[in-house]
């Protein structure tokens, strides 16, 4: 029996600035391409149905859920994962620093997706209100924090950005 979707296609995709020209099975999801093919394990899997956002990455500047996209669909795209962040002092960028200062994470499983969410939000809207932050976070489920400190962290990151 041939595995369904085993037909292989070569895709050209840039991930965190590094170009990859790689053969992938047609059925392979972008999240599995990132995690298994490229070995970037900061992108997590939480639900398989596009609800939880643990697999969020930035694709051509937009926040997407990498479980909702086939790797072949990313052909020609530029992807940013959590591994692209954190060149600042202490190895954390200002958003990550704000999450650390405001206890915006507990188990850390949703965190990469949420940090990328915050990054795209603040790029589009540098000074979001609490309601705007909460609306932006709707597609990223966190089971630990009750979102309160995530909102605080993003507010703080926005404040720091404005300085």
């Amino acid at each position: 029996m041939a595995t369904e979707g085993a037909a292989v296609h070569v895709i050209d995709v840039t991930v965190n600035g590094v170009p990859h020209s790689t053969a992938v099975p047609a059925r392979r999801l972008l999240e599995h391409f990132i995690r298994e093919t490229l070995g970037l394990r900061g992108t997590h899997i939480g639900c398989d149905t596009g609800n939880c956002g643990a697999c969020s990455v930035i694709c051509d500047g937009q926040l997407i859920k990498s479980c909702m996209m086939l790797a072949v669909q990313a052909d020609g795209c530029e992807i940013e994962t959590i591994e692209s962040l954190g060149d600042g002092p202490d190895g954390l960028d200002p958003i990550q620093q704000a999450f650390k200062e405001h206890h915006g994470l507990q188990c850390g499983y949703c965190t990469p997706g949420i940090v990328l969410n915050a990054k795209t939000l603040l790029a589009e809207n540098p000074h979001p209100s609490e309601a705007e932050i909460r609306r932006a976070l709707k597609g990223n489920i966190c089971r630990c924090t009750g979102y309160v400190n995530i909102v605080r962290s993003i507010e703080a990151a926005a404040g720091a950005q404005g300085e």
Partner: peptide
Amino acid sequence: KSVPRKEDKRLLKGQGAFVDD
């Protein structure tokens, strides 16, 4: 005291080691 967490840096950078990793 609310000392910042030692765990956070690796988790924020996606460097945690969860079982599927």
